[in-house]
Write a protein that binds this DNA or RNA. Structure first.
Length: 305
DNA sequence: CTGAACTGTCGTCAATTTTA
DNA sequence: TAAAATTGACGACAGTTCAG
């Protein structure tokens, strides 16, 4: 592996030429394929600030501060009151977090070789083909799990009260789930069916009035009619024993799966937006480091006159 | 204007993973 | 371990773009 700085420095921005469809953040021009490359390098970051002790062969123990933010690569920098570390090019620092950038307070950027020590490759699935994974077709983890592993990129769950995503993963994906949710109520015992439309009140809500007498337990006889015209009427025998009507079960399964598919697509969009945001942040940082390196090189150049 | 190509969304199925 | 949840894949459909 080359040094982080050199690696980033040589990287021509591969993302700037891309274009996204309309609902993507306009400032972020990228592609998901490119995102995966970034994602592969940044696993399991923890939203915390920690002090890391680095032992350098030439300078002894040095304290540096690791600024690790959610969904971002770690940036390790010395605190302002700590003596800058002189790190000659070629030194190898073992850092458990890959792609860390170590810089001093005086902005004297050091070139490092960052060696990934952990065997944690739990995130390598997004780039590998099934063949690379040993020829086994494995399902990718859920978007929720992926972002949880990334730390901080929690996908909002439609079933929970409205949550704001993290700043990097903020999303304007409309929550269509709530507006499409169907609500069922137990109304009356089962029996013969009357259909009445409630003119006022909830639009599209119909009630099936089952006027059989005898009894038996409540029946779910109300259904909402929105974009999806759905029935949810359990079948009853005369003894009140629920007969699992195959058609009804199928309807219920389809309904649930329909909603699940919507939710899944919403999460997917949010996941992609989150990755796009990360790319934007990382590109920004990369550009900053490149410029910083340039200026430092100019400073270090021997004067010719 | 029209038809083809393209794109986005949706519902469904099925395979897989997660949960109780 | 069964049920529930998740998600990739597929086809259908509607809207948009563009060349002819």
């Amino acid at each position: 592996m080359e040094s982080m700085v050199e690696e980033n420095g040589s990287a021509v921005d591969p993302l700037s030429a891309g274009s996204q469809s309309g609902d993507a953040a306009p400032a972020i021009a990228t592609s998901v394929q490119s995102l995966n490359r970034t994602q592969q390098q940044t696993h399991h970051l923890v939203a915390s600030t920690s002090i890391v002790q680095l032992t350098l062969p030439t300078s002894g123990a040095t304290q540096v501060q690791s600024v690790i933010q959610p969904n971002q690569q770690s940036v390790i920098q010395t605190a302002t009151n700590i003596q800058p570390v002189a790190i000659s090019k070629g030194n190898v620092i073992l850092v458990s977090k890959p792609n860390s950038v170590i810089q001093t307070a005086q902005a004297s950027l050091q070139t490092l070789q960052v060696v990934e020590t952990g065997s944690d490759d739990s995130f390598s699935d997004s780039e590998e083909s099934p063949e690379q994974r040993g020829g086994i077709l494995t399902r990718r983890p859920s978007y929720k799990k992926i972002l949880n592993d990334l730390g901080g990129g929690e996908i909002t769950d439609g079933r929970l009260p409205p949550l704001e995503s993290s700043s990097e993963c903020d999303s304007n994906v409309d929550s269509e789930v709530s507006s499409h949710s169907l609500h069922y109520q137990t109304v009356i015992p089962a029996g013969t069916i009357q259909i009445a439309t409630q003119g006022e009140g909830v639009p599209g809500l119909h009630t099936l009035t089952m006027s059989n007498a005898a009894t038996a337990g409540g029946a779910i006889v109300q259904y909402a009619q929105g974009q999806d015209t759905q029935f949810f009427v359990p079948a009853y025998t005369g003894h009140g024993v629920v007969v699992e009507d195959a058609a009804r079960k199928r309807e219920l399964r389809l309904l649930k799966n329909r909603q699940a598919a919507r939710e899944c697509r919403r999460k997917k969009k949010e996941y992609i937006k989150c990755l796009e945001n990360r790319v934007a942040i990382l590109e920004n940082r990369n550009q900053t480091l490149i410029e910083e390196l340039k200026s430092l090189k100019q400073l270090c150049e021997p004067k010719t006159d």
